[in-house]
């Protein structure tokens, strides 16, 4: 007969499971060990947010995959330079903003399809439709939601880059102060860009409806 020498008590782990690690701990662990599981966890936490930010920022789900990939690979190779006092999400979106800017500048240079609306009409194909996650709502509600999203995407798509940036970063949870620090401008400039942008979106939505 076996005797449990710990009196049947399990040792409460001093080792945290990966899901309990904070962003900073994950970054630290990845930098130290280069173990992909830590990076995969970071990706799992932010992949959807990042991908959606990129889609809206560059206005193209197809090209978003390339930019998305570039962002993560840049993050992976530059994590040594990540300063602990910043939130990882801020660092991620800082890299993403720059990657989107580089991508759009490249398109502008080529003078090829500088602005491609996210939503394409039926003659253009159905890629966009396939990329939208399927919701649990009934088809009618789902259609309404899709229409709203199309209107919003169009409205965001025509905003000047500065306003678009602030609105999208704010939508991803960054505070105005954090955006101001990232953009190295005053908080008042950021607020002003945001207000102008949101007003334009509101106008676009009210016109379309």
């Amino acid at each position: 007969m076996f005797v449990n020498i710990n009196g049947g008590k399990k040792k409460v782990g001093a080792v945290k499971i990966i899901a309990e690690l904070t962003d900073r701990e994950l970054v630290k662990k990845y930098v130290e060990t280069k173990d992909q599981k830590y990076f995969a966890r970071l990706m799992a936490l932010y992949d959807r947010k990042l991908f959606n930010y990129i889609v809206r920022r560059i206005g193209s789900p197809e090209n978003a995959a390339d930019v998305y990939q570039t962002v993560w690979l840049k993050i992976a190779s530059n994590l040594n330079g990540y300063r602990d006092e910043n939130k990882f999400s801020n660092y991620l979106f800082f890299i993403a903003t720059n990657a989107c800017f580089d991508h759009l500048r490249g398109l502008k240079k080529d003078n090829d399809n500088f602005y491609r609306p996210v939503v394409r009409n039926e003659e253009d194909g159905s890629d966009y439709i396939e990329n939208i996650s399927s919701g649990t709502d009934d088809p009618e509600t789902e259609n309404e939601k899709r229409e709203d999203r199309e209107i919003l995407d169009r409205a965001i798509g025509i905003l000047p880059d500065e306003q678009k940036d602030v609105i999208l970063l704010r939508a991803k949870g960054l505070s105005f102060r954090e955006i101001a620090e990232m953009k190295r401008v005053s908080i008042n400039s950021i607020l002003s860009r945001y207000r102008y942008g949101v007003d334009k979106i509101k106008n676009s939505i009210s016109k379309r409806r």
Binding site: K34, A44, D47, N131
Partner: peptide, 26 residues
């Protein structure tokens, strides 16, 4: 407007994360 903008309606293409992970420096 903010809630709509914050909505993450697009799925990350399937397999893309795995491709990225395979490209990470070892």
């Amino acid at each position: 407007v903010l809630a709509m903008t914050a909505e993450d309606g697009y799925d990350v293409p399937e397999g893309l994360n795995s491709i990225i992970l395979s490209k990470l420096p070892v």
